[in-house]
Amino acid sequence: MPLLTCQSLSLGYEGKTIIENLSFSVNSGDYLYIIGENGSGKSTLFKTVLRLIPPVSGRVITGDGLSDREIGYLPQQTMVQRDFPASVSEIVLSGCLNRCGIRPFYSKREREIAHLNMKKLGICDLAKRSYRELSGGQQQRVLLARALCATKKLLMLDEPAAGLDPKGKADLYQFIERLNSEDGITIIMISHDIEPAAKYASHILHIGGGGPLFFGTKKDYGASGLWKIYGCREGGDISWA
């Protein structure tokens, strides 16, 4: 059974449909890359899958032992968060809240998990620092550590590399690749960077014009040539093998 299935899903806000008739499924271990223009509804799709907003019609089904509260979510950065007084460790630890249930405080085990994930992302030395004083790349790593605290199975990342320099981007994509291949965490990622898709993804979902333009394996996507409407400054020498 797939980890996540969307069945003829239509989504939008307050009856206004943005994407219609979207069907796809994600199996354990997959790396699904979601591509589409700004405003095509990618973030809205994430919110629908996470049950933050109800679907207009259709269904989102979680399976393979995945509970819908143990998905690690990295939201698209919003300006509201940026002046918030919070330390790095406070934020990362808050990813463990779904393990607490009604218990009011974090257990020792949860503090350990938070620490391990900070170590993984190399932000232990930032633990006491204020989130709002960090660079964009450091902030993304903090939010990624938080998402990792919330899940062992599925990460949903909404434009995690936006605003990073080329080196920062490359590092981040490599790190996410290792989470997928070494830790076996399923990845669903929204991004505008086309080369990492060719390099790392297993499946591609391309959204546009109010619906899905493509869903399938990376290889088929490469053959479809759809990606050429995106940045093809490389002149089409991307290898989708």
Binding site: L52, P75, L97, A150
Partner: peptide
């Protein structure tokens, strides 16, 4: 802890139940 989570990032908090 819950008030912190909901205040800092309501979407993330709701996504984790």
């Amino acid at each position: 802890n819950k008030i912190f989570a909901v205040t800092f990032d309501e979407d993330f908090a709701r996504a984790t139940g």
